[in-house]
Nucleic acid binder design. Structure first.
Lengths: 243, 243
DNA sequence: AAATATTTTAATCAGATGATTAAATTATTT
DNA sequence: AAATAATTTAATCATCTGATTAAAATATTT
């Protein structure tokens, strides 16, 4: 096992510890002694980061259930056993990817939505541009998040605490203030967020369908998404004053 | 095997035919003689429809890769072997569910969008109402379709011919006419459809996330969706005249 | 009711899959 | 450089999983 994972209390099913030097010998802790590892984790061995990167790609594309550890090993061009050596299990590796992916996603949102120096309208523009640019780099992420969260849901999301805070952002305060001032018709900011995120993310989520139906190449699809980057703010702002 | 599936040319791997009566004996056709069955298929044996119904539920909830044939058998309260007896294979059963699901989805859309007697605005209202009501009965369907289509995509969608025709509907003609008359700003109907469908479907696709973040019960979530049934048409119509 | 066909069941198979192991290789420490 | 630790490899394991089979049970035909 990687040296930085050996903080006694190894997983009971693993017999590796035995070959380590003496101080590991006191490992009498049984089964599921889940100890948070990484005492002084070295800035990711190359092997480890290559595997993680491959895992990210494969998981994003196929989802947890359809992914084979052998797929990841092949994508990383690594021996299968190295996945378990560095990441214990498929589940654990997936968890890591999932948390990183969700963090990136909610992080981007919260940075924009909690900026006290920008107006509501500016935030809309920045969120749309930031998100579309972000998603274009990894277009499978929205669908990945939505489908994989079915299994995790509560567990994962509440433990991440980024998500929880979305409805207590500066953005929401500004939204409610604008409602009070009669500048916005729809009083519930959740509806607005669903509309905004739907317009941003749905086309990516539906992209296999969209590409087939509209007969678009990847290039053409991306162009369409870049058009949306300009137009969604306009559409959304029109919605705010609807009826 | 079910009697209506025995149109000679059985799957080579199946030895069942041997116990059938004489006329089946000429089955010399080898391996993958994929013959379209159902000569006079009896209106679905009870067992068969129970299995299909269970399969629909389980596939919709977990997706193809995460579904175990044993899950379906258990949900249907049937012996595992009956799945293969009636449906040959997991893949085949899935295919059937997928086609039926997609047909229902696109069918609903095309009925509304090809009605020559309704205006563009009326179509928007009808589409929103029809879809939200439909989806509420099976809220997992949008996410199911989007995630499962990744694997099938081309294959399935082109062979279904509902999807292809969406961009040649009466609705699109009416849209283009309205653009010509300056009543609509955005010239590309695809953008409009993405916005409309995104606003309708995205909340369901993101529902595990939405429920967790906004702390909504299933009941509260459904109420929110029914609100949207009223408001999406308003929002969307405002968008049409944006800028 | 006997004969035949269909449906259902329990047991089993073969291949896939996540994980582990012991040995080989490489790197680090002494 | 010898000793020790960490990494990598090939082989193997145990379980899961989709599918099949032969026999039993039930229904249909003659």
């Amino acid at each position: 096992m990687p040296h930085y994972l050996n903080v006694m209390a190894t997983k009971a099913t693993s017999a590796k510890g035995k070959r380590n030097s003496a101080q590991a010998a006191k490992t009498t802790a049984p089964a599921k002694a889940k100890v948070s590892p990484k005492p002084k984790r070295p800035l990711d061995s190359n092997t480890e980061s290559i595997i993680k990167s491959a895992a990210r790609t494969v998981f994003h594309q196929k989802g947890f259930a359809a992914t084979r550890t052998r797929d990841i090993a092949a994508a990383a061009n690594m021996n299968l056993a190295l996945l378990n050596y560095y990441f214990k299990s498929k589940e654990n590796l997936f968890q890591i990817i999932m948390v990183e992916t969700l963090s990136g996603f909610f992080g981007t949102m919260l940075v924009v939505f909690n900026d006290t120096s920008t107006t509501l309208e500016k935030k809309i523009t920045l969120a749309v541009e930031g998100y579309i640019d972000l998603i274009i780099t990894e277009p499978e992420v929205p669908l990945f998040m939505m489908s994989e969260i079915r299994t995790s849901a509560k567990n994962l999301l509440t433990r991440l605490k980024g998500p929880e805070s979305i409805l207590q952002t500066v953005f929401v305060s500004q939204y409610q203030e604008a409602v009070k001032q009669g500048k916005i018709t729809e009083p519930n900011p959740l509806h607005f967020l669903l509309n905004l995120l739907g317009m941003i993310m749905f086309p990516f989520i539906a992209s296999p369908m969209v590409k087939t139906i509209a007969k678009l190449s990847d290039k053409q699809f991306e162009k369409l998404m870049l058009e949306r980057k300009q137009r969604i703010p306009v559409w959304v702002k029109a919605m705010l004053k609807a009826k």
